[in-house]
């Protein structure tokens, strides 16, 4: 088993909470894991990426090679495009539809996604709205993780355990809300697959 995931977003959007939940899940299962993060200057509103690799055998590179990622999980639509050469044939792209416009030349993306959807499996989800609907507007990243979960080679029960261990310190209510958000995302994705 191996699952290679590119996590993309804009500095400050908290993609690392997604990585942390999956990391905790992987560790609980005694899987091997490598996860390269972006720290430093780009965290100030720049493009950020995390390479997350989970396998049942030792992993060599901290970086995912071109054409090898099973999944691009992006919390911002334009950022989902930046790492496309890393996606494996048959790989999936799951992205939040809410645009983060902190640049003056933000492009129109609809036709790009239309064109891409001829070639790859794309799930576009308004995670912010779904998070609001589940009563936890702050949990949109967990909605995104849920939406991506059908494309990750780890059972959803194990990912939920990972989420529980990450949010445990913040109390049962927060854990429950994040798990709910995850489930809502997963339901959306399964329906729109």
């Amino acid at each position: 088993m191996k699952t290679d995931i590119i996590l993309a977003g804009v500095g400050g959007q908290g993609i690392l909470s997604i990585a942390a939940s999956l990391g905790a899940a992987a560790l609980n299962e005694n899987y091997y894991l490598k996860q390269a993060e972006t720290h430093g200057m780009s965290q100030r509103g720049g493009a950020v990426v995390s390479h997350l690799r989970i396998a049942d055998h030792p992993i060599h590179s901290d970086l995912i090679p071109l054409g090898a990622a099973d999944l691009i999980l992006s919390v911002e639509p334009m950022e989902s495009l930046r790492y496309l050469p890393h996606l494996a044939p048959g790989g999936s792209l799951v992205t939040n539809t809410i645009e983060f416009k902190n640049i003056p030349n933000y492009p129109e993306l609809e036709s790009t996604f239309e064109e891409l959807s001829q070639k790859i499996n794309i799930i576009r989800i308004d995670a912010d709205q779904i998070a609001k609907d589940t009563g936890n507007p702050k949990a949109s990243n967990m909605v995104m993780l849920g939406a991506a979960s059908p494309f990750i080679a780890i059972h959803d029960d194990i990912i939920i355990k990972g989420i529980e261990s990450i949010f445990k310190a913040k109390g049962d209510k927060i854990v429950e809300m994040n798990v709910e958000a995850f489930k809502a995302g997963r339901t959306f994705s399964t329906k729109n697959k």
């Binding site: 804009v10 509103g45 493009a47 334009m78 050469p85 640049i103 030349n105 492009p107 891409l116 790859i120």
Partner: peptide
Amino acid sequence: NTIAIPDTLVGR
């Protein structure tokens, strides 16, 4: 045969 980055993408 990797997927190309679309031209629409701009730097951030």
